[in-house]
């Protein structure tokens, strides 16, 4: 992970904002009449694509790939989870905000951990 506070904060806020926005989008689109599996797939795809565009704007402030990849992943998971939830039952807006923010936080942490494992001089591609 980047150790500069500006980028740590930027990564975290970008992912939390993305998670919240996608969960709120799901609330606008998905209702309890939806098939849960369809809601999950539709919101997963929509979350990822919407977050690709969102990451272009966030990337201006916080970097390119380091924002695009986690934010798309956050959009995908936030869309999946909120889509399934909203297909099963009505969800309060505050709960969806918490869900989106938590998804963003978790994805940020996962990316930090995976990055810690992958970064550095690699021999995997040398041969």
């Amino acid at each position: 992970m980047d150790h500069r506070l500006y980028f740590i904060f930027g990564d975290l806020v970008s992912n939390m904002v993305a998670g919240i926005l996608i969960a709120l989008c799901a609330a606008l689109l998905v209702g309890t009449g939806w098939n849960m599996f369809v809601a999950m797939i539709v919101m997963m795809a929509l979350g990822m694509i919407l977050c690709l565009f969102l990451s272009l704007a966030l990337g201006i402030l916080f970097g390119a790939m380091e924002i695009m990849v986690p934010v798309m992943l956050t959009g995908m998971f936030s869309g999946m989870i909120s889509g399934m939830w909203l297909a099963m039952a009505e969800a309060p807006v505050l709960s969806l905000i918490w869900l989106g923010a938590t998804t963003g936080l978790v994805i940020t942490c996962v990316i930090w951990l995976v990055n810690a494992a992958l970064r550095g001089v690699s021999t995997a591609e040398l041969n």
Binding site: V69, V114, R119, L126
Partner: peptide
């Protein structure tokens, strides 16, 4: 002949 690959972000930026 590749002598070093240094991953900076995941295995994407290097």
């Amino acid at each position: 002949e590749v002598t070093e690959v240094d991953n900076l972000f995941l295995d994407i930026v290097k």
